[in-house]
């Protein structure tokens, strides 16, 4: 019994941590840079499909089956998502802030469409199965299998977290935040804001792709239904609960929201008769939607709030002065 409980716990955490990676990717785009991505599901799907195509064993049913090592699949997935992010960013980052949102929404729609319709590549509505799982040889021993998997995921999350933290604290990250907080200040620093934003958007997209790839290898298959808009929404809810701009918050938010989500899904399956479950699930989404709006209204900085890394380098109160006042102050003896 307790073995089952531990392995279920490990499985739960493993999946929650794949969401944490998505959330970290979104945090680079939104939390650090202020770029709004409404198509998270699309970028996650790109990573998942690319990795699946690269690593599955040879097959007739879809493109690929190259049987490559899992790590190659993960890197390939991340690179592909980063590339698409770069292209979409290059198209829209110069334009109005919400054109990027609209374009990413379009990406999610089109990726979903390709997944469904490009059967020779993606396997169509049934997707791709037999995606190799790490430590598949240990599948006979559920406890070891799930614990080892959890270990891999903890390592991946830690690696992503540490590299992103380094990035945030690097000169690059400081400029990025300066751009987000105050575009004129950023230009005054003599940096090309568009280029920095674009890099951040591509990095964030790449991290989402990696998350998609990792996720695919733990659940063992990819299918269009895995990457519907509700996924985008969940990742957003995680980031907002954790506090945008805060990487530790992003991870914590992912575990918390995924926990609430699975618990309420379990409650629905127990409490409602089968014919009412679809309706109850809809109500579940209504609740999350309302909660998101409420957080935006009441705690726009999230539950944990943002770690203000930049403030040590740039005095925010000085930047808030209207230019005229600074001129006056400078004149004082």
């Amino acid at each position: 019994m307790s073995v089952e409980l531990v392995s279920y716990g490990a499985f739960f955490l493993t999946i929650a941590l794949t969401y944490a990676i998505m959330c970290l990717g979104l945090n680079v785009q939104w939390g650090q840079t202020g770029l709004f991505n409404v198509g998270v599901a699309g970028f996650v799907a790109i990573g998942a499909y690319v990795s699946a195509i690269l690593t599955t064993p040879a097959t007739e049913s879809h493109l690929g089956g190259y049987g490559m090592p899992i790590v190659i699949g993960w890197l390939g997935g991340a690179l592909a998502a980063a590339l698409i992010s770069f292209l979409i960013g290059a198209l829209t980052i110069r334009l109005r802030a919400d054109y990027l949102a609209i374009a990413t929404f379009g990406v999610a729609v089109v990726v979903q469409l390709c997944a469904l319709n490009l059967e020779p590549v993606t396997g169509g509505p049934f997707g791709i199965g037999f995606i190799p799982r790490p430590f598949a040889g240990l599948a006979g021993s559920p406890l070891a299998f799930s614990l080892l998997n959890l270990g891999v995921l903890i390592a991946v999350v830690a690696a992503v977290y540490l590299s992103l933290e380094r990035l945030v604290r690097s000169p690059w990250g400081r400029v990025l935040r300066a751009i987000r907080e105050d575009e004129t200040a950023a230009f005054a620093l003599g940096k090309n804001a568009v280029r920095f934003r674009l890099q951040a958007f591509a990095i964030g997209g790449g991290v989402m792709g990696l998350a998609g790839a990792v996720h695919a290898h733990f659940i063992g298959f990819v299918a269009p239904d895995n990457y519907v808009p509700i996924l985008t929404f969940q990742v957003w809810a995680m980031l907002i609960v954790g506090g945008s701009g805060n990487n530790r918050g992003a991870i914590l938010g992912a575990v918390l929201v995924w926990g609430v989500w699975t618990a309420s899904a379990a409650a629905i399956s127990v409490l409602f008769p089968p014919e009412q479950q679809a309706r109850a699930a809809a109500l579940q989404i209504v609740m999350v939607g309302l909660a998101l709006c409420a957080v935006l209204l009441l705690r726009p900085r999230g539950l944990l709030g943002e770690v203000r890394v930049v403030s040590r380098y740039l005095d925010p109160s000085a930047r808030r002065f209207p230019a005229q006042e600074i001129a006056t102050d400078a004149r004082k003896p």
């Binding site: 005229q324 006042e325 600074i326 001129a327 006056t328 004149r331």
Partner: peptide, 8 residues
């Protein structure tokens, strides 16, 4: 008044 005096 000088710049920044608050006229505007």
């Amino acid at each position: 008044g000088p710049n920044g005096a608050g006229k505007s």
